[in-house]
Every structure is written in structure tokens, then in C-alpha cells.
Amino acid sequence: MNIHSYEKVWLIAAMLLIVGFIATITYGSVALGITMVDDSEETIDPNALEEHERFGDLGVHQTDSDEYDVHVRAYQFNFEPGSSALGTHDPIVIPQGSEVTFYVTSPDVIHSFSLVGTNVNTMVVPGEISTMTAEFDEAREYGVVCNEYCGSGHHGMEGLVKVVPEDEFHLFSVADVDAPESIEAGEETELTATIDNDALQTEAATVTLEIGDEQFDTDVEVDAEASAEATFTVDTSDLDLEDADDLDWTVTVEADSPATLEDGSTSGTIDLETDEDDEEADDEDDEADDEDDDPNDDDESTGDDE
């Protein structure tokens, strides 16, 4: 078999090309430390995700000073957490400069979990858990898409990852608010909020109570992975009650932080025992109700959030 010498030259060049490609990929794997999604996780029963230690507790969890785990359920046709565009779920919020490991699985069909414009991209297969660790050095938002066809609503499956400056990040939530069911107008009353801190370090939380048309702030220090109480004493005679027959309140932790999500605030209503009620007051009250409503909160009737 005779091969023309020019073709031999090309054969050598082609082999160099192939070896060069493999060498580049190996360089990325070894020197840059880029790892592949793999079989390091045990399989999971897709019909019993809530019984799993990770997927029974979705969301962002701190594991070390700058390390976080995010547990995400990708299902037809949302990410939980992540799909926040229509208010279905919270966005994923993580602090700048952190190393984040995503754990993603699916209870139904194959999806993907892909941060648009990045190299964070994985298939999500029912029965398997995809894990990916990446460092987020820039404070910005990333869109998340499902890039594997998953059914007729596939195109609507999107989410959001918000990387926020470290000082705006926290893992507080309002666990409970102890508020009276009813008081007499003009009386002094007390509301006590229980604030959970899921972070691995003690942090100070600013807790805000909005009641009537007034706002009160108080600072409370919460130990790592513990709770603390913030108490507000409100003299209703200071409030402009305008013949209202009830009083709406909202307790929010770190109200200005982008890391404050649905569990970061709780609302309720206190009945006011007044001498007279009239129709006009009712109407005004309804309007006020609409304005004060926290759009993220549909749990208005009681102070107990969880």
C-alpha cells in the first residue's frame, strides 16, 4: 500500500491535532480543576423526594464559612427554588464570593439545570442527583433554563440565581410571630417574632414591624443555627386608627436585603374592639388592606408561618 508523501504529512498533522485536543481537555480537567457531573451521588426514588435529606429541605444551606449547598427540584415546568418570574417559587439567592454546590433532581421527566451564559449546566435525570460546584465572584443575576425538552410547557421553564454582595446576604427567616388576636383600641400591646438564623455564624438581624401606618425597627443578635426573639411594644393610641376595626401587621427580617424571601416575612391581623363600626370604615379598610399586602405572602390570617 503506497500512501503519497503529502498524505503522510497530513496523517501526522491529523494525529497531532487529535492528541492536542485530548491534551487541552486533560489540561482543563487537571490544571483548571474542571470536573464532570458524575455518579458520586446515590440514586433517589423520584416519587419520594420529600423523604430525602436534601430534597425534603429545598433551598440554600450554608456548609462552611464561604460554602453553600443549594437543593433544587426541577419539575414540569419549574425550578424550586429558582422559578420566581411568576412568583411561583423564590429565586435562588447566594452570596458573592461563595463556593456553591447545586444538588438537582427531578420527580418526573428529564430536565436540565443550566445557568445561562456560564459553564454551569447539567442534565437532570429522575432517579439521579446532579451535583455541580462553582464559585460565584461577581454580584449579578443569572437566568436558569431547562434546555432539555420536558413536555408541552418546556419553553416556560426558567429560573433566576441572584448573587448578592456578602453584606446583603443572610439566612434569616421569620419562624413565628406571637401576636394577640384582638385588643381594645388605644391599648398597649406586644408582638414577639422568633427569628431563625440558618447561617453557621452569629449574625445581627434588623427586624421590622409594620403595623397600621407605623414602622418599628429592632436589632437582634441570633446565634448560628439558632433562634432569637424580637419583641415590639406598640401603643395603639399612637397609631392613626381612623375608626378601623382591625389592624394589619407584617414582620420582616432584613427588609432591605435581596436575600429576604418568602419565609422572611409574616403578616397577620389584630381585631380592634371599638365602640362603633360603620360601612365607610369597612371600605377604607379594604383599600388599605390591598396596599399593605406583601405580594409574596398569602398567609395573612395567622402569625404562625410554619
Binding site: 483548571l32 470536573t35 454546590t101 456560564t118 459553564n119 462553582a134
Partner: peptide, 12 residues
């Protein structure tokens, strides 16, 4: 590719 960070890296 390398400029398209963040990128999946091994757990340190």
C-alpha cells in the same frame, strides 16, 4: 469556554 465563568470545579 474558560472565559465563560463560573465553571464547574471539583469540591475543594
Amino acid at each position: 469556554f474558560v472565559g465563560n465563568e463560573p465553571t464547574v470545579v471539583g469540591m475543594v
